[in-house]
Design a protein around this nucleic acid. Structure first.
Lengths: 342, 342
DNA sequence: TGATTTGATGTAAGCGCTTACACTCGATTT
DNA sequence: AAATCGAGTGTAAGCGCTTACATCAAATCA
């Protein structure tokens, strides 16, 4: 063989004086080869610097040991963190991660599904459950096991994630318990984003249980940036009566709101309480520190990897795994200041 | 063909009444097939729901249209952002991204290189230039084009990144121009991390040019966390004489330092100036806003993708592309307060 | 008009691997 | 001692695709 050509199974077999089948077995089922032979083969692999060819292997075995993930964007600490853990866990199972991003567009997600499918991924990680039925159907027809992550999904399918609705409701109850009655919410964009929608619903439900009807709970949807959060907060503060607590759909919006509050000369939490969601690093850094909901994305990433591997291996799998969240009380939630008019 | 089996090229060929070669050409070189035939083939592809098999294609064409990236971790806004842009750009060229993480370990990076190699990636994105020669040699032998990103590397190889050294020096000059003489630095861990090392050197060089010898410039290396930054800052503030300006190797350390300053009752920038590096979102959110160096990671990601594609296509490529950085003056850098003792 | 070129398509040989099946040979059973 | 077994290994048939080369008909030329 040419010194610089990539060595093949044949080269190894020849060098070790065995057949290609034996070399293949050394790699895939070492215990089906007697120790002495195996050593000889391994030695040959080592000296030749052989690594199996992916194409050949994929073609012959009908397996790729590749897992895909289609996420809205990595440019978001939440997904980046989860994906990192997912990838690490996958790597422990000898799988490699193929990533694609949808930019929150269902059409683009579908395209990427086709890319993943034609790459023969063994399984696929998706975010959430809000997607056209046709996309789901596509994966089913192709027989690609897939998983919705970051939330708990709907009727069918497998999920590993958080109960965003319950967590949001829990936080809302905490706010109500402080004595707040005039709540407002800055939600993430809910269209095709079930996490944002669930959080909004959770807040609404808790408020309603406390006797606050939906029409007395102003909600503004805002994109995932500080500026949008700030803008929404400004609009909310212009309302009469002014809300005493603003629940935000995520920490980014909450921090944007905090900036705006400072700009408006409003003290947090004396003049207005603000809460976030996700507990990103930022939450512990702003002043005062943000009261929020901890969402352990890294644990989720790991759990997702394990679940997907089981799905791929056709092992028994629970339909959904809930990763518990926790309310983190820090400095931005306090009791409302008694209305000066009273 | 079985209704549920994945259709193959053969199925398409039969359905369209042409040979497999023609179908293949329709997919890979449409202009080498006459329009009427092509339409018939495309129609068949459509109705059968055919997607080419990756393994077969990779095996036959010796190309995978896959690009790998081995980064320290995605769990770091800097890399996540760059990677996102890289992936998007790649996707526009019809390439898919395979990601792996090294956790800052050269050994692990090497392992991942082998994984990437055996997957037949067409090209590889690496971070920085600090790695054992053997790793580089491995890629060369395999003939895998690769690229160092995020810095400008050394003697040979291709790079797209920033001149961390010059940028750090520039910022240091700005600090000196404010009148500071007692500088200190909290650097990132420099071992096997050329970005951190370059930044440290840049600060040292600028200080020396201003007549401040290295031994009068205390430097503490700290891991990429708020806490480590805070701890290092605490140590620095215990020094006598106390530094009046602390240059940090990245924004995370700087924000940690700011927190510690508040804790210690030190005002920023009145009592002590603090600067960062990277201009992550966080930098614009802390109070006062952080003076730092803007490092456009998304532009870098795109440039890296383009360069790697050219490398893969064996087109003419510049050896290094420098992405310009910019100093962002915000609130944490001010003139030193005159020493009360003077 | 016959010779030559050109463009569209078909034929078939692999690409590197896995795996069903066949084979060998010593150990065990009858 | 013959029959049976099983562990270790080899043989060889593909897996689905690309592509060099062959073929053929139509277009062009002399």
């Amino acid at each position: 063989m040419n010194e610089f050509a990539k060595p093949t199974l044949d080269d190894v077999a020849r060098a070790a004086g065995v057949s290609t089948a034996t070399v293949s077995r050394c790699l895939n089922a070492p215990d089906r080869v007697i120790a002495t032979t195996r050593e000889r083969v391994m030695q040959a692999i080592e000296t030749l610097g052989y690594t199996p060819d992916f194409g050949g292997r994929a073609l012959a075995s009908r397996r790729t040991n590749t897992v895909g993930a289609i996420i809205p964007t990595m440019d978001n600490a939440i997904f980046a963190r989860g994906l990192q853990s997912f990838q690490e866990a996958l790597s422990r199972f000898g799988k490699t991660l193929l990533v694609a991003s949808s930019g929150y567009s269902p059409a683009r997600e579908r395209e990427q599904m086709e890319v993943m499918a034609s790459r023969g991924v063994d399984g696929l990680l998706l975010i959430g459950s809000a997607r056209p039925e046709a996309s789901v159907e596509f994966l089913r027809r192709r027989g690609i096991p897939f998983l919705g992550a970051w939330n708990l999904g709907g009727e069918d399918g497998y999920f590993v994630g958080f109960d965003n609705r319950a967590a949001a409701a829990g936080l809302t109850e905490k706010v109500l318990a402080k004595g707040h009655r005039r709540l407002a919410m800055i939600a993430g964009i809910t269209e095709m984003n079930d996490r944002a929608a669930d959080r909004m619903e959770g807040v609404r439900a808790a408020a309603e249980r406390a006797g606050i009807p939906a029409d007395e709970l102003p909600v503004i949807e805002a994109a995932y940036t500080f500026d949008e959060g700030a803008k929404a907060f400004g609009n909310l503060m212009a309302l009469a009566p002014r809300p005493t607590a603003v629940l935000c759909g995520n920490d980014v919006l909450a921090v944007g709101a905090m900036q705006k509050a400072r700009e408006l000369g409003l003290r947090v939490p004396e003049d207005v309480s603000i809460t976030g969601f996700d507990d990103i690093d930022l939450a512990g850094v702003v002043d005062p520190k943000l009261t929020t909901v901890r969402v352990p994305h890294n644990r989720m990433g790991e759990a997702a990897a394990e679940m997907l591997i089981r799905l791929i291996n056709k092992e028994q799998v629970e339909r959904r795994i809930e990763i518990p969240t926790a309310i983190v009380e820090r400095g931005t939630l306090g009791p409302p200041t008694p209305d000066p008019a009273t």
